[in-house]
């Protein structure tokens, strides 16, 4: 079970990112607990300067814009650590 957090202020790109992550994880048969973080204080605590950002198991793996499906697939192919 991977803890996935989507950081973003609730804009369209954030919702798209959440959907993309959910569907790709399902394709790869990876169980995830998805959580959206919209509170600005918390977002900033991750040291992120662009939203939407994606945090997997406490690690920022992406920041700024909707990630590409290929990049998302990579997070779920191997352990999230790069």
């Amino acid at each position: 079970m991977k803890q996935v957090k989507i950081l973003g202020s609730g804009c369209a790109n954030c919702r798209n990112t959440a959907q993309l992550v959910e569907s790709v994880a399902q394709e790869h048969g990876v169980e995830i607990a998805l959580e959206k973080i919209e509170e600005m204080q918390q977002i900033i605590a991750y040291g992120v300067m662009r939203t939407p950002a994606v945090v997997i198991d406490g690690k920022v793996v992406h920041a700024g814009g909707v990630p590409t499906p290929a990049a998302v697939a990579q997070w779920f192919e191997r352990p999230a650590a790069s």
Partner: peptide, 15 residues
């Protein structure tokens, strides 16, 4: 620098 107004706040604080 890539910039989107939806990220203005985290960027502002980051700077």
């Amino acid at each position: 620098t890539p910039f989107c107004s939806c990220s203005a706040v985290p960027l502002f604080i980051g700077f």
